[in-house]
Design a protein around this nucleic acid. Structure first.
Lengths: 220, 220
DNA sequence: TGAATGAGCGTATGGCGTACGCATCTGTTT
DNA sequence: AAACAGATGCGTACGCCATACGCTCATTCA
């Protein structure tokens, strides 16, 4: 049935090798030549299975996250909370994930699995299908943004956590930005961002879930 | 007082030229050589004012957004809504903004101006400083994520808006992902994402602001 | 009038993504 | 068994990229 030489590698192998490099040395170390070398193939051999490096990055993006967590029984709120925390942990485990420029909605199996998991968590609610999707998109958006703010891939403020507050103090002019000055002086930026799941994340998550709860209550 | 040759360009000029190129031809067209050519200088001249291309990208990122909008008088909720919509519009006007990989919290004057504006909108509320920051971070995170999902910088589903729903139908296995299948069949993904501010955004925004309102009510 | 300082820039280097074409292998057809 | 067709592996080559280094020139101070 199928003619021609049998392939010795496939796109999944390439994706795996690229992810291994990114895990070990960061996304910048992932080049077509490097991936090929790691696999024992020639550079151009990869292009039989992957159209471009951009496509490889998209494949990495989808394959980056492990499987979604098992959801506990109980209220939708607890289940979504578990889901969101697991998503944050999964992103934190691969800091290069946020460095990949992605456009448009997700299509790969990895992301769809997470999407399905979150929709399952909302199973018992009276939300309409479109509303469920809106809730999940909003939540996953929030988690990714929070991860972006609090994980420091290579350099930065992590060494001295409260340096950020000091830096702001030096830059902000109290006359032109009084509201910002006020919260800086109150020390709102001096709290240390620990690398576990922080209080900031919990606060934002609670806000969002409160909003969902209000919407459900209005519906019922 | 100051010895040596007088500079003929500065970092702001370079940033402006780079932004002009990105606006016209996309972020990929921005190279040090190209920026220099557009300014009538030699490539290496730029490095006297900018340490690296990464630094230039960071400068572009901060300078990308216009000034925050004038906030209307009234309730915090309306004011934050205006702010969020303006932020979304500003991001949409420069699609390359989301393509710049940024790590860590914002420091530039452009972002701080937006931050101050949002904090001003929360001025009359009984929230503590840290909570205000949490609300603004969560909201700006949500807006950026929504922009990422709905703007299609170069290619994609924009031509046939409901193609996405069809693509999902073809890929998703009803047995392994029943919850996802259900919402797909309900047509939740077939709605056209217009390029104005869409219903999805309004829905997510309302959820988040509902959450803030609930928190404020609990406080008072 | 030198000396010091900093700006503009020419050259060179190493890495990158990838277009192109050839050689090689494999299943089909004669 | 022999010829064929189609897909894979890959060597070469090209153009673009960021940027290290050092020279030259303009400007100001002693």
């Amino acid at each position: 049935m199928k003619r021609g030489r049998k392939p010795t590698i496939d796109a999944a192998d390439i994706t795996r090798a690229a992810i291994a490099i990114a895990d070990a040395e960061g996304l910048a170390a992932v080049s077509m030549a490097r991936v090929a070398q790691e696999m024992g193939n020639a550079t151009m051999a990869l292009y039989r299975h992957v159209k471009s490096k951009d496509e490889l990055l998209a494949l990495m993006w989808d394959a980056a996250m492990e499987d979604p967590p098992p959801l506990p029984d109980g209220e939708w709120r607890d289940r979504l909370g578990v889901w969101a925390r697991a998503l944050l942990r999964a992103i934190r485990r691969r800091p290069w994930f946020l460095r990949i420029p992605i456009s448009g909605p997700p299509v790969g199996p990895g992301n769809l699995a997470w999407l399905d998991s979150a929709l399952t968590a909302l199973g018992g609610t009276p939300l309409e299908p479109g509303e469920k999707v809106g809730v999940v998109m909003g939540l996953s958006t929030f988690v990714q943004g929070e991860a972006r703010l609090t994980t420091t891939p290579s350099q930065g403020f992590q060494s001295n956590p409260d340096q950020y507050g000091q830096a702001l103090r030096a830059v902000v002019d109290p006359r032109t930005m009084p509201a910002l000055t006020e919260v800086i002086e109150a020390g709102a930026f001096d709290v240390a961002h620990g690398d576990d799941i922080g209080a900031d994340f919990d606060f934002g998550l609670r806000l969002f879930l409160d909003g969902v709860a209000a919407h459900i209550a209005r519906r019922a």
